[in-house]
Write a protein that binds this DNA or RNA. Structure first.
Lengths: 156, 156
DNA sequence: CCAGCGAGTAGGAAATTCCAACTCACCATA
DNA sequence: TATGGTGAGTTGGAATTTCCTACTCGCTGG
């Protein structure tokens, strides 16, 4: 992903420029689960080792992961999410829920997340101000910068 | 993205296999904004036309977009999100908010979304059951299928 | 001394992306 | 009826990335 190419200023594009490359979000999944060692990542994600090394460098540079030494002599590392990285976990949860709903028949979810409240986590994206669920019809886009021409129902 | 490669059964990986390719989520952004025509997509996303054509085919096949005829003779199309596609919009909003928070200094957000409640949308991912915000420390992963070995704090 | 593990690097084949140009159908004008 | 223009792609090759296998390097354990 050399040039962003995106002619619009957009935080979605910017975010994807960092975590949108192949494997990056799966790395984050593993790291959030505590499986942050290189060999674990290779095994659990199934990514080529060199690509993985590149991704890890990038995610560390971006401040999403941190390289943690879990053993001096022999020196061994583990990747852990930074606070910024942890803030992406809700994105993963939302994506997982979407996949569970739309990509699987029945209830054969490969993974269930339990929330501290005791229930299975079914994430909902809500408006912080009013608490209401975020639905397309309730949104209105207001471009703040040039480069945006919005046409449709979500227009400004 | 030929082989998923992911040796684990995982709805995050499955979802990313569909919408995780370069440009796919940007296509969804534009389409949710109502800019669903091929030429608009080319201009607004900055993707090569051939790649875009491939992505659009894939997203339609996956049931995320629908090709809509807005003019017979000359035949002209517009891509629109299906209900399944619209359910990904919260993912985009969450990603945008993350980008706004971590990738930009100050408040130079390129786009502000207004919620129907009258406030600026700041999305929060919450637990549907208890309404609490989803935070890493409050989650516990329970693998339902073989292929999972979880080590860390979020372990089962 | 030899084998083995973790964490990568190196080299080349295979697959994708990128770019510019081209097509095809149709309309508008003249 | 030629001439130009638009929308929605397709095509052909060059430039990048990915993928795969093997290799390295530091260190430990027997």
């Amino acid at each position: 992903m050399p040039a962003s190419g995106d002619p619009r200023p957009c935080s979605i594009a910017d975010a994807l420029a960092i975590v949108g490359e192949k494997y990056s979000l799966l790395v984050l999944r593993e790291v959030c689960l505590g499986n942050g060692r290189f060999e674990q990542l290779v095994r659990n994600i199934g990514a080529p080792r060199d690509v993985l090394a590149t991704r890890l460098r990038r995610l560390v540079d971006a401040g999403i992961l941190q390289k943690h030494v879990y053993s001096e002599r022999p020196q061994r590392f583990e990747y852990r999410p930074t606070p910024a990285g942890l803030e992406l976990e809700p994105v993963l949860m939302t994506l997982m829920a979407w996949g569970d709903r739309h990509l699987r028949k029945d209830d054969d979810r490969p993974m269930v997340i339990e929330h501290i409240c005791g229930n299975e986590l079914i994430p909902t994206v809500t408006c912080t101000a009013c608490g209401g669920e975020v639905r397309h019809e309730d949104l209105m886009a207001h471009p703040q910068a040039p480069g945006w021409s919005v046409a449709g129902p979500t227009a400004a």
